[in-house]
Amino acid sequence: SAGRSLRASVLRNRSVLLQWRLGPAEARRVRAFALNCSWRGAYTRFPCERVLLGASCRDYLLPDVHDGVRYRLCLQPLPLLAEPAGAPEPAAPAECVEFAAEPAGMREIVVAMTAVGGSICVMLVVICLLVAYITENLMHPAFGRPGLRRQP
């Protein structure tokens, strides 16, 4: 995010770990956090439901993220209610982060292709070494060297 206090980490199990930090002075003035999200699908944009988190919360796990969809998560600290005679504290602006999960299928295909390609290369090297060994050691040349002729 722009403020660098909100961070989204896309995990391998298709979930996202959202983490944030507050300074000590800010943390004393917060009563809760409001988490809003939206995601842009192929044809339309969908809002996620609003989630309220406790003041001591510093992370949130968003499970089952769709591959290739652009997400936008916004976290807004909700201020403490002021005394009844005083005016309430103004709400801090929401900090947002955007991300898209990489399609898991493509990652698996790349890993599989790399493994197959590596296996083929190893097999080709072994075949070349085997042909070189056979050529050098087992096959007799058609024309022998002078002085090394075999006697019957």
Results as ranks from 00 to 15, higher is better:
34 A>P: 01
45 R>Y: 00
116 V>C: 13
48 C>R: 02
116 V>Y: 14
52 L>F: 14
83 E>C: 07
44 T>F: 13
27 A>V: 00
106 M>T: 09
43 Y>A: 07
80 L>E: 14
68 G>I: 04
86 G>T: 03
8 A>P: 04
59 D>K: 12
70 R>Y: 04
71 Y>Q: 03
50 R>E: 14
65 V>I: 15
81 L>K: 07
11 L>P: 02
56 S>H: 06
119 S>N: 09
40 R>K: 04
127 I>Q: 10
82 A>Q: 12
98 E>M: 10
12 R>T: 11
59 D>R: 15
68 G>H: 00
47 P>S: 12
111 V>W: 10
41 G>Q: 03
61 L>V: 14
17 L>D: 02
123 M>E: 10
118 G>V: 00
66 H>A: 15
93 P>H: 11
48 C>E: 05
89 E>F: 10
88 P>E: 02
23 G>I: 03
85 A>Q: 11
42 A>H: 08
30 V>I: 15
110 V>G: 02
105 G>W: 12
53 L>Q: 07
121 C>R: 09
28 R>M: 06
21 R>E: 11
100 A>G: 04
26 E>R: 01
51 V>W: 06
36 N>P: 00
14 R>F: 05
12 R>F: 08
64 D>N: 15
60 Y>P: 04
95 E>K: 01
122 V>W: 04
63 P>C: 12
97 V>L: 07
114 T>W: 11
119 S>E: 07
27 A>M: 07
58 R>F: 08
114 T>D: 12
91 A>Y: 00
32 A>T: 02
107 R>N: 08
35 L>C: 06
12 R>P: 08
94 A>T: 02
36 N>D: 13
45 R>G: 01
89 E>A: 11
83 E>A: 15
112 A>I: 02
117 G>W: 01
99 F>K: 07
25 A>M: 01
63 P>M: 11
55 A>V: 08
122 V>C: 06
47 P>Y: 01
37 C>M: 11
93 P>R: 10
18 L>A: 09
83 E>N: 13
12 R>W: 05
92 A>L: 06
86 G>D: 14
109 I>E: 14
27 A>W: 05
72 R>H: 07
75 L>K: 01
77 P>W: 09
40 R>L: 05
75 L>S: 04
102 E>P: 07
88 P>R: 01
111 V>L: 13
97 V>H: 06
14 R>M: 12
